[in-house]
């Protein structure tokens, strides 16, 4: 299609260029412009309103002296690592189980995926109720006669992040399962025949043949889930609102609170710049990998 060269290059595809104006505007103004604005103003003294008074790394120094920010970072790290590992393990296990030509495959898939259709607010509110130490599961189990049953994660400063994790996994593992199942189903049936003829047990085939072949799906899932973890916000607001105390604060919430509730813009912008940097650290190797692959193909 591109081969049909026309005389005037400026008017070539004029309609397409006009049609693409919203996209061009959004990429330049929002995705590039706004991000750069945030990075630049994170080096200023801005408080309630943006100011053009540059103070170098002052906001960052303050940020990393604030215990709330450090707790936020620690929380997101713990949540992130556990969430990634468990999402992959649970997601793949469920996908492999569902792949066993089971009956009611659709029913199981529907049940496992439905939480993904719900918002983090709904998820947070429900799990807040289930894990409620005085009236939730703990209370019910004790009332049923299991006196020593303890499940007060949500009220425990050290463990509250795992309460968020339980809720987050409930909401998100179905998504991983669907992607993994698609990956498993995308593998050539010949592979299975071959491994069967060689007498390799099914689980070994999954582990050593199927997973390595699913690299593409795995990497994509990883990037999507990781980018989602960095954004973690709604769930915390709905489930613990950062509590008890500041034990379950996360970076995204720090940004929001300092920008909009505490009128300390500089801190909010510095914190969001750190978030951006983190995402770039995840993203750039991935793009490099993808780009490299494409070069090989062509």
């Amino acid at each position: 299609m591109q081969a049909a060269k026309r005389p005037n290059p400026l008017f070539k595809n004029l309609q397409a260029k006009i049609a693409a104006i919203p996209m061009i505007a959004v990429t330049l103004i929002v995705f590039l412009g706004c991000s750069i604005w945030t990075v630049v103003y994170s080096f200023t003294k801005s408080r309630a309103l943006p100011l053009e008074e540059f103070v170098g790394f002052y906001q960052y120094e303050r940020l990393f002296k604030t215990s709330r920010w450090l707790i936020s970072l620690e929380n997101i790290a713990i949540y992130g690592i556990f969430s990634l590992i468990l999402t992959f393990v649970i997601g793949f296990t469920l996908a492999a189980l569902i792949d066993q030509k089971i009956r009611f495959e659709n029913t199981f898939r529907t049940i496992i995926l439905y939480p993904f259709a719900l918002s983090f607010i709904v998820t947070g509110v429900v799990w807040q109720w289930i894990l409620d130490p005085t009236l939730g599961i703990q209370h019910s189990m004790q009332a049923l006669g299991w006196e020593s049953f303890q499940l007060d994660l949500i009220a425990d400063r050290d463990l509250v992040i795992f309460a968020l994790l339980i809720a987050g996994l409930w909401q998100g593992t179905g998504f991983a399962m669907v992607l993994m199942l698609a990956g498993i189903r995308g593998i050539d049936g010949e592979i299975w025949k071959a491994s069967r003829i060689d007498g390799i047990p099914t689980w070994k085939t999954y582990l050593f043949v199927v997973i390595p072949m699913m690299r593409g799906v795995m990497v994509t899932t990883l990037v999507i889930i990781a980018a989602g973890i960095v954004k973690l916000y709604d769930l915390v607001v709905a489930m613990t609102n950062g509590g008890p105390g500041i034990a379950s604060e996360v970076p995204a919430k720090y940004v929001y609170d300092f920008m909009f509730a505490r009128a300390n813009l500089g801190q909010g912008l510095a914190a969001s710049t750190i978030m951006l940097t983190t995402v770039l650290i995840i993203l750039i190797p991935w793009i490099y990998l993808e780009y490299g692959n494409k070069k090989q193909k062509s």
Partner: peptide, 13 residues
């Protein structure tokens, strides 16, 4: 690329 940038980064602008 932009779809991976955390919303927080673009909120205030």
């Amino acid at each position: 690329f932009g779809s991976f940038i955390p919303y927080q980064v673009m909120l205030y602008p």
